[in-house]
Simulated scan of single mutants.
Amino acid sequence: MRALHLAAAVLALACLFAAAPAAADAGSLALQENESDSPDVNIYGPETAVYNYSEEFRVSVLGADVESVTWKFPDGSTATGTETTYRFMEEGDRTITVVVETTDGETLRESVTYDVFHADDDDGWNPVPALQFFGMVGFFLLVLLGLKMVALPMILREL
């Protein structure tokens, strides 16, 4: 019986670790260490961009203090701050540029280009939000299953 509980615990933990990156921001880029003395600008966003779907972006700057951040989007609109959202309204290659002003008066620029695709089917239904929802529901169901199979029996056994 103890071996069954141990197997269930291992399975639950494996499921949690497998699902955790999907529940977090699976499309974000990995943070790289700044190996030089010059400031390093990193843009974090989705791996792919979907037409008419709001995407989240953020920027981090290593090696410098930030005074201001300005985002420049393909349609000419702008945003300020280290985090923003943008809805791509055109398909094809689209570039987002972030301009960072440091407290030392230095201007840093970084750009990222996306191949924006149209995910709608003939009925006009966009599957991306539904897939995100079901991914989160699945993650929480795995957490509940792990609690029921591992934590609850351990607690009841101690009582």
Rank of each mutant, 00 (worst) to 15 (best):
V61S: 00
T80K: 08
F133P: 03
A19C: 05
S36A: 13
S111R: 12
L4G: 05
P153M: 12
V66M: 03
E90G: 10
R87A: 01
D25H: 15
D25G: 14
S68Q: 10
E67D: 06
A23W: 04
L11W: 13
P129I: 14
L13Y: 13
F73W: 11
I43V: 07
L62K: 09
L145D: 04
P74T: 01
F133K: 11
F88K: 02
S111V: 05
E106L: 14
S38E: 14
W71T: 05
V116Y: 02
E67L: 04
G92T: 08
E110W: 01
R109Y: 05
V66I: 12
S54F: 02
S28F: 07
T95Q: 11
V99Q: 06
M89A: 10
Q132W: 12
L6V: 15
G81C: 11
D40I: 00
G124K: 08
P127Y: 04
L144S: 13
V128K: 03
E83Y: 12
D123I: 02
F133R: 13
A26P: 10
L144Y: 11
V100M: 04
V69K: 00
T95F: 08
I96G: 00
A22C: 08
I43S: 01
F73P: 07
N42C: 01
N42A: 04
F17R: 09
F139L: 13
E101I: 07
S77L: 03
N126W: 06
L11H: 08
V99Y: 03
S54V: 06
E47I: 06
S111H: 06
T85V: 14
N126E: 13
V150S: 14
A49W: 05
L62P: 00
D121M: 08
P153G: 10
A23P: 02
R109N: 13
P39V: 02
T48Q: 08
F117C: 06
A130G: 05
Y51V: 05
D120N: 06
F134S: 09
L131F: 14
W125M: 06
F117K: 04
L159A: 09
F133S: 12
A8S: 10
N52I: 03
F140I: 03
F134R: 04
L147G: 13
V98F: 01
M1D: 04
V112Q: 13
D65G: 06
W125D: 14
E35C: 04
R157A: 14
V143M: 07
N52Y: 10
